[in-house]
Amino acid sequence: MTVMTHAEALVAAIRECMDEDENVALVWGSLMGVGGNNDHVEHIKADFADRIFHPPISEAAIAAIATGAAMDGVRTIFPMGTASFMFRAWDQIIHEAGAAHYMSNGAVSIPAVFHVVHGLRGGGSVQHSQSPQSMLWNAPGIEIAMPSCPADAKGLMRTAIKSNNPTVFIDHQKLNKRSGEVPAGAYDIPFGVADIKRVGADVTIVATSLQVVHALEAAETLSAVGIEAEIVDLRSLVPLDEEAILTSVGKTGRLLVVDEAPPRCSVASEVVATVAEKGMDLLKAPPVRLNRLPVHVPANVALEDFVGPNTDRIVEAAKTLCG
């Protein structure tokens, strides 16, 4: 085990995959939103200059170029920056990358990775704070990964690069500088395998990305008042580990889903619907969705906090659910 930041773990995965496979290419924008931490990515720049492409501000064209190259086996990693910007490449990701395998009757596959940074980042305002995961989940043909810690970020990024499907890899700005233990050596974490980040018998909290961090913090507070929460970190939405969710709800009988997308047709909605269809009899109480409020994200940080799910709100919701 070594301790790495989330950003360092992503870079380590990219480095390994570029070493392993000469067909891996990288579009070098503001890499993974690592910002001022660029010193630890210089080695990639130095060693793989011929596989790195510097981007203009052209999300749509680059997404389609990555898709077209993928049809000939080039695995392009395209860090698009703030998730809000990916809407400019919506057509290319959904109709080209996401549809090519289906449209070709399986003849063509699209091993491309679109990396974005979602969510409430502290003053991002309306046009820099999107959480597009639920919108993407409504589009067939795209894998969606959402790590919550450095170890998962590394293993999931390796899987994303090796996958023969287009993957949208959704990170969170507030995760980038967080540190955690990362296993030594190269390892892949398969998509579709949720991770139980904390074991508990009273309430199941399903979360993704930064909200897993918030849920773990909330679980400590809840434990002090006698409520033991089980935290299910989905890690990928496509494929979805339904079994892990149902198994945990079978144990606790209570479901709280935390999600940074607004509530209608959200990740929380889909998880609750899945449990309603396949595990209604497991529930002791109506399930609860804890989402960002159904409004745009104001620039004011106090209001941003107010519209988002957070640790206090998770505590409050879990207490009410268990009350």
Binding site: S84, F85, S125, Q127, H128, H296, P298, N300, L303
Partner: peptide
């Protein structure tokens, strides 16, 4: 903008600047 826009989105319809997009282009 009532504090909801911030530096990226300052706009004022009363002077004919109804909306400021921070998206390039």
């Amino acid at each position: 903008n009532g504090g909801r826009g911030g530096t990226f989105h300052i706009a004022d319809a009363s002077v004919g600047m109804p909306h400021t997009s921070a998206l390039v282009g």
